[in-house]
Design a protein around this nucleic acid. Structure first.
Length: 592
RNA sequence: GGGGACGUAGUUCAGUUGGUUAGAACGCCGGCCUGUCACGCCGGAGGCCGCGGGUUCAAGUCCCGUCGUUCCCGCCA
């Protein structure tokens, strides 16, 4: 007995006249009373079975009783289709299998949803994920995923990287995301944490002298989920010793060119642009700008510093900024739409949004035009590159608020006017991030990237005196406005690491308690090293063109971290609570 | 934690200014059908309109609450 002489999608004209055995799922059945057609599907594709009552009466009875998605096995012969019955939409459409025997290996119940239905409730799809995974789009996505990791491994192995493992049960660390915590049975009251990333372990590999490490690593962060964020996700984590920033960026660039070339057949132009964080914030209002469209922000503060419009003049006098961007075609916006944009600006912390509408004739319509001189108007138009038919939007406030408002407005307008070419790829590296940011809530400095990121050598002496001015060796890889990877050169001297710990408010005791294992290792000679960690899920999202991370994860969680497939998380038993030395908390809420 | 949208048959949806017995398509069940490929034709079953409360002579429809899903803000070194 054998289940198949060929996979469904691999039957071909060269096999006409040969015996065939095929197994798979009943994708569709077309019953003509006498004659029955079955589309038989497996991972490779589909082939049509024909059950002819005169040829195989027993098989006909089986065929007529089979429900869709049942698993069956057919024996027969590969035969050519009559020319008028060839199906050009099917790779196997020139042939079919004339069935001798048909056997139902495992029947299917009626389905909870149809596999070809669009927009089926996601919780239902995930609850029946084994069914959902049979859909072509899901299978293709998971195949892109396997191609991605396969190519990553080949690319990095070819360049001397070792694939090394790091612990899943590890130490809870301060800063960063909320840890997932695992109670330690053998040490009641103590916990392990699941890694937010293998960051420190990969650094220890470098200190161990292993030069080049990578891992397709699962990472865990107990934070709110988003369309592109999942409680557990997968990173390509890599680290290199005796390496410069540009060598890491070039490696990343080469990897993504190889991925796009091999999976999409797209040749990405090299090198990928590199802009500084400061420039990105100024020109695009974002540290992950989408460069598929313009809408570039222009600073017109100097132009309007003495204007008759008090809002502009006042903002500049108070040390603020007036910045503007022009949007193609937006001069036709209605009053209501303009009001909505002003409302949008307020939601992002602005006072409102000033605008100039450039009529097709070139004439400027604007409530604030009467406060501005001809020169000022012309200067704004020139600075933003606005053309007749465009609208110029202006925000005046503190620089931080202006960046925030226009940074939000830019993608908002791009979406509204469909300015991003859906087939375009805009890769870039953002470099020179600040080392520290000031946390207003906590009233202290915090690491912008993480605490192990090296400051630029030329800024090192200002760590204590002016932390906000210190730039770091951190960088991001951004594609189409989405942060795909983040990395940095790391600190490799213990005294520098201690200075950074102190700056973010750690006493020496706390630092030793939390990161003693790192400091201990640093004291025995750490090589200069650095790395980067591209998100595998987000990379696959780009490759298959989806907006939802749940589409690229085989078994994802939905809102609230709930898994409709397994119903996890589920209550622990009293025995489990007792073993862990924990008190049973009251239930959070009753079911509706 | 906050805001927006959504919740009607197994699935995807419609349901008028509140007004007879809540509809369609697909699926399911039964029947017919020998060249279909989203096969076709005939018939049938299937509804706590998410849940609770309120307004009203009358609620799928209006109001409040709640639960769930989703997108966003906060958060995500």
């Amino acid at each position: 007995m054998t289940y198949r002489t060929e996979h469904c999608g691999d039957f071909n004209e060269g096999q006409i006249g040969t015996d065939a055995i095929a197994s798979g799922w009943t994708a569709r059945r077309r019953d003509h009373g006498g004659l029955v057609f079955i589309d038989l599907r497996d991972r490779s594709g589909m082939v049509q079975l024909v059950i002819d009552p005169e040829h195989a009466p027993a098989a006909l009875e089986v065929a007529q009783a089979i429900r869709v998605e049942s698993v069956i096995r057919a024996t027969g012969k590969v035969v050519a289709r009559a020319p008028e019955t060839v199906n050009a939409n099917l790779s196997t459409g020139a042939i079919e299998i004339l069935v001798d025997t048909l056997e139902e290996l495992a029947p299917s119940d009626p389905l909870p949803f149809q596999l070809d239905d669009e927009g089926v409730d996601e919780a239902l799809r995930i609850r029946h994920r084994a069914l959902d995974l049979r859909r072509d789009v899901m299978r293709e996505t998971q195949y892109v995923r396997t191609m991605t990791t396969r190519l990553i491994r080949r690319y990095l192995e070819d360049r001397g990287f070792w694939e090394l493992e790091t612990p899943i049960l590890t130490k809870s660390t301060p800063e960063g995301a909320r840890d997932f915590v695992v109670p330690a049975r053998l040490e009641p009251g103590s916990v392990y944490a699941l890694p937010q990333s293998p960051q420190l372990f990969k650094q220890l590999f470098m200190m161990g002298g292993y030069e080049r490490y990578y891992q397709i690593a699962r990472c865990f962060r107990d934070e709110a989920q988003r369309a592109d964020r999942q409680l557990e996700f997968t990173q390509l984590d890599l680290e290199m010793s005796f390496v410069t920033r540009d060598e890491i960026l070039e490696l990343t660039e080469g990897l993504y060119c190889a991925l796009w070339q091999e999976i999409l057949g797209v040749e990405l132009p090299r090198p990928f642009p590199r802009i500084t964080h400061a420039e990105a914030m100024l020109r695009f209002g974002s540290d992950k700008p989408d460069l598929r469209y313009g809408l570039e922000i222009a600073d017109v503060s100097a132009l309007v510093a003495n204007s008759g419009f008090s809002v502009f003049k006042g903002a500049v006098e108070k040390g603020g900024a007036v910045r503007a961007l022009s949007c193609p075609g937006a001069a036709a916006l209605s009053r209501r739409e303009l009001d909505e944009l002003a409302e949008f600006a307020k939601e992002w912390g602005g006072q409102g949004l000033a605008y100039l509408l450039l009529d097709p004739s070139g004439e400027i319509r604007s409530p604030i035009a009467k406060f501005l001189s001809e020169d000022e108007l012309a200067g704004i138009v020139a600075a933003t590159g606005a053309q007749p038919g465009d609208a110029v939007f202006l925000a005046a406030d503190s620089p931080a608020v202006v960046v925030r408002v226009l940074g939000a407005l830019r993608p908002h307008l791009a979406a509204r006017y469909e300015l991003a070419d859906p087939k375009a790829w805009a890769m870039l590296f953002v470099v020179d991030f600040p080392l520290f940011g000031y946390d207003e809530n906590e009233g202290r400095w915090v690491a912008e990237h993480h605490m192990f990121t090296a400051p630029r050598a030329e800024d090192e002496d200002r760590i204590e005196s002016d932390p906000g001015s210190v730039l770091s060796e951190a960088y991001d890889f951004v594609v189409n406005g989405s942060e795909i990877a983040s990395g940095s050169l790391r600190i490799n001297r213990p005294e520098l690491q201690e200075r950074v710990f102190r700056t973010v408010g750690f006493s020496d005791e706390e630092a030793e308690d939390r990161f003693g294992f790192l400091l201990r290792a640093l004291r025995f000679g750490a090589p200069p090293h650095g790395g980067i960690a591209p998100g595998i899920d987000r990379t696959v999202m780009l490759l298959v063109g989806t907006e939802s991370i749940r589409d690229v994860i085989a078994f994802p969680k939905i809102a609230g971290g709930f898994d409709p497939l397994t119903d996890a998380p589920s209550p622990a038993t009293p025995e489990q609570w007792r073993d862990l030395g924990l008190v049973v908390p009251p239930p959070k809420k009753q079911d509706a």
